[in-house]
């Protein structure tokens, strides 16, 4: 009888584990680089929140713009006050869908295309980016990279400093997802 109960409990556990479709993390790393030969400009935030739904192949990503750390306090100030206008637009967001085939049961690294909407500085643009995804037991590891042009998001950079900031900013993302319990 006890064995039967144990079997039942175990099967329930595996059934639940199989039904897990949403993964998340609140500690995703996001950094960007807009360095030129005149100035090194890199910033990083360790607190992006991101979800991945392996049934629907959907991804969501959001970060608070004031959580980015720069080398200099002055850069942080310019970034938040002049460029991103963090007081008006405190978040940057991405929601998208994995458009290339992916087998979540195969624990191997795959390179996929992700297509979606990127919103920052109050402007939404459609972007397609490449992501590296490694499904694992009870976790998903992902990395992605994309290039954006500040002017596409209505970010005005004064001509006096335009040469110091790269034309295209490279954004890199690193995330280790864990199952999300509702």
């Amino acid at each position: 009888m006890n064995k039967l109960i144990l079997c039942f409990a175990l099967s329930l556990f595996f059934f639940n584990a199989g039904a897990q479709s949403r993964f998340f993390t609140k500690d995703a790393k996001i950094n960007f680089n807009s360095s030129t030969s005149l100035e090194d400009i890199v910033a990083e935030s360790n607190q992006a929140t991101t979800f991945i739904d392996i049934d629907k192949n959907e991804v969501a990503f959001s970060v608070l713009t004031t959580s980015f750390k720069f080398r200099r306090a002055l850069m942080e100030e310019h970034f938040n006050e002049n460029y991103m206008e963090s007081a008006k637009f405190p978040k940057a967001k991405f929601t998208g869908k994995i458009i290339s085939p992916i087998d979540w049961k195969n624990e191997k690294l795959v390179v996929v295309d992700v297509k979606g909407q990127l919103t920052m500085h109050g402007v939404t643009k459609e972007v397609t980016l490449k992501a590296l995804i490694t499904p694992g037991k009870g976790k998903v590891v992902a990395a992605a990279e994309l290039k954006v042009t500040p002017e596409d998001f209505a970010i005005a950079i004064p001509s006096a400093v335009r040469d110091k900031i790269a034309k295209d900013v490279t954004i890199k993302i690193d995330a280790v997802y864990a199952p999300y319990q509702q």
């Binding site: 609140k26 607190q47 929140t49 959001s62 970060v63 608070l64 004031t66 959580s67 405190p90 978040k91």
Partner: peptide, 8 residues
């Protein structure tokens, strides 16, 4: 610094 799921 604002709120995502949690207030940071």
């Amino acid at each position: 610094s604002g709120m995502l799921m949690d207030i940071q």
